[in-house]
Design a protein around this nucleic acid. Structure first.
Length: 272
DNA sequence: TTGTGTTTTATTGCCTCC
DNA sequence: GGAGGCAATAAAACACAA
């Protein structure tokens, strides 16, 4: 099985387990331990899982490339992936079983799962970010079209108001002849319609002209999107959730995602 | 071939849970 | 206090463009 076939031979007399787990060979350690090595020590480094006997074996030097941090074979990775799909946490029994099956140290299996969970979490974060971004973009586009509609309606109201005032002035011209408003007159109907509509649409500038009794709201985020801003109580949200924008609460998922075997991410986002 | 960026394997240190 | 998880990190292995 290629150059690293010894991975699959747990019965081999290398004593790999002790050699690896017992840290008897500092030159094969990674991370901080390695960083402390000088150049001379580095040049003497031997492959992973080599036994003291191997180090004196010429054939060993022929067979094994120096400085090897061996990757798992595709078969090993495949089996580990399958196992990870079933359950992303590793109970001691399963770890031992998998290690035996793969010819790896239980520690290696545990490390692989640890790293795999980290990779999965990163991917999940990317997916969540993409989802949030597309939701945000869609909301932004909706907001823009609503603003445009609103501007259009406002200018319509203004022009109709001006027309109405002009008509009234013309009608008042002959002294002593103040006609009763004819309820069938299109102008009257229009004005009444505007008045009703204006009451329904809170915060229109036009309402100030037509109806001083209508509620006067500030032209703010709150006034135009009352249903968006305070959707739900976020009192138990984390600290960084408190500095939210007008749209922040819109991103609350409408349904809780189902708990799958990767429940870790759900917890990460604070979902129950 | 070589420089550089990415992925994978592994360690370390800290934290939490039992 | 030991076991296990996670974040941060190192370093080998790998991919790939110039």
């Amino acid at each position: 099985m290629e150059s690293n076939s010894f991975f699959f031979d747990p019965s081999a007399s290398h004593g790999n387990s002790m050699f690896f787990l017992g840290n008897l060979n500092p030159v094969v350690q990674g991370g901080g331990a390695r960083s402390m090595m000088n150049m001379e020590e580095t040049s003497k480094r031997r492959p992973f899982f080599s036994s003291p006997e191997d180090l004196y074996d010429d054939d060993f030097y022929d067979d094994q490339l120096p400085e090897k941090k061996r990757r798992l074979t595709t078969e090993q990775v495949h089996l580990l992936e399958k196992s990870f799909e079933t359950e992303n946490k590793l109970e001691p029994e399963r770890k031992t079983q998998l290690a035996k099956k793969l010819g790896l140290q239980p520690r290696q299996v545990a490390v692989w799962f640890q790293n795999r969970r980290a990779r999965w979490k990163t991917k999940q974060l990317e997916r969540d970010y993409d989802l949030l971004k597309s939701t945000y973009d869609q909301l932004l586009s909706n907001y823009d079209s609503i603003v445009m509609d609103n501007d259009k309606l406002r200018s319509e109201v203004t022009s109709l108001t001006e027309k109405l005032q002009g008509k009234q002035e013309t009608a008042n011209e002959p002294p002593g002849q103040v006609p009763e408003p004819n309820q069938l007159d299109p102008v009257y109907i229009n004005a009444a319609a505007i008045k009703t509509e204006d009451r329904l649409s809170s915060g229109s500038v036009g309402s100030a002209v037509l109806d001083d009794d209508a509620p006067q709201l500030l032209d703010s985020c709150d006034s135009y999107f009352p249903s968006i801003v305070p959707i739900q109580d976020n009192s138990n949200a984390s600290d960084h959730d408190n500095d939210r924008s007008c749209f922040a609460d819109v991103f609350v998922p409408t349904t809780s995602p189902s708990h799958d075997h990767h429940g870790e991410s759900l917890a990460f986002w604070g979902w129950p």
